[in-house]
């Protein structure tokens, strides 16, 4: 529970969102509203459409039916809207996707300079401040491949934060990490949640969901099956599919 939720502002609104990969329907009639400052955790079995859903929110994937409105901007084929959205929505990937040819500092500075048009010095200051915040300021001049997985993912978080996003999307941020590195990444995410960031997190870390989430969404077969506060959802699941899922993993 983060206690920063602004019920006045629905920062993300999905209405009747559908998406197909060829003939296969990956998203079925998704209706979702996220308030400013809310931390939403999305859980569900593989192939349930969790990743596709959050990738639709910054239009890395295009939805084919329904409306998605992010921060007051409707997502459609208008390219200017897409760029405006992406500036406000940070994303952290399962595979980190750091830029291997650039130093850690350049990874965090590049988009600040090319998108936010900040000066070199300003971008560097912001980058160093953020690297400090995620606890790796001493690695600023190394290349990503010289860092551990946990450190790389923290750089990726810093890189996304450097754009001063209003929303952060996490696509299974700890799934590619060794067990001992998961905690350091989750700690950074917890701190971020406490600071009031709006977050949508796809994860298999149920402990994180219980501790931090304001709301948990369970997806299966491309549809939102059940959604509730973590306490209710985990302790008193209603839908048989969710009961089965929780029995498998807890």
């Amino acid at each position: 529970m983060t206690g920063h939720i602004n019920r006045e502002n629905k920062i993300i609104q999905c209405k009747g969102v559908n998406k197909w990969f060829g003939k296969f329907q990956v998203l079925k009639d998704i209706n979702l509203e996220v308030y400013e400052g809310e931390v939403v955790v999305v859980v569900g079995p593989s192939g349930s459409g969790k990743s596709t859903l959050i990738r639709c929110l910054n239009r890395l994937e295009e939805h084919q039916a329904g409306d998605i409105v992010v921060d007051g901007i409707s997502l459609d084929n208008n390219t200017r809207n897409v760029s405006a959205i992406r500036r406000e929505v940070g994303m952290v990937f399962q595979q980190f996707n750091l830029f291997p040819h650039l130093s850690v500092l350049a990874n965090v500075s590049l988009a600040q300079r090319t998108v936010r048009k900040r000066s070199r010095g300003e971008a560097k200051d912001t980058a160093l401040k953020l690297l400090e915040r995620v606890g790796i300021s001493d690695q600023a001049y190394k290349h990503p491949a010289q860092l551990s997985g946990g450190q790389q993912q923290r750089v990726a978080i810093a890189r996304a934060l450097a754009m001063n996003p209003r929303i952060m999307l996490f696509d299974e941020p700890t799934s590619a990490l060794d067990p001992e590195m998961i905690k350091e990444v989750l700690d950074v995410m917890k701190e971020l949640a406490r600071s009031g960031m709006t977050m949508i997190v796809v994860t298999h870390e149920m402990g994180f969901a219980k501790e931090v989430a304001d709301r948990v969404i369970f997806m299966d077969g491309g549809a939102i099956v059940e959604t509730n506060t973590p306490a209710v959802l985990f302790d008193n699941p209603q839908h048989p599919r969710l009961k089965n899922f929780l029995a498998q993993i807890l």
Partner: peptide
């Protein structure tokens, strides 16, 4: 160059030409 590189650049708000010049071509 892995697809995720372009996705990461685009998700940061970089335009496609910027992503190609700064991220894809050097690699």
């Amino acid at each position: 160059v892995p697809k995720g590189q372009l996705e990461a650049a685009r998700s940061l708000g970089m335009k496609s030409y910027q992503s190609i010049i700064y991220i894809v071509i050097p690699q």
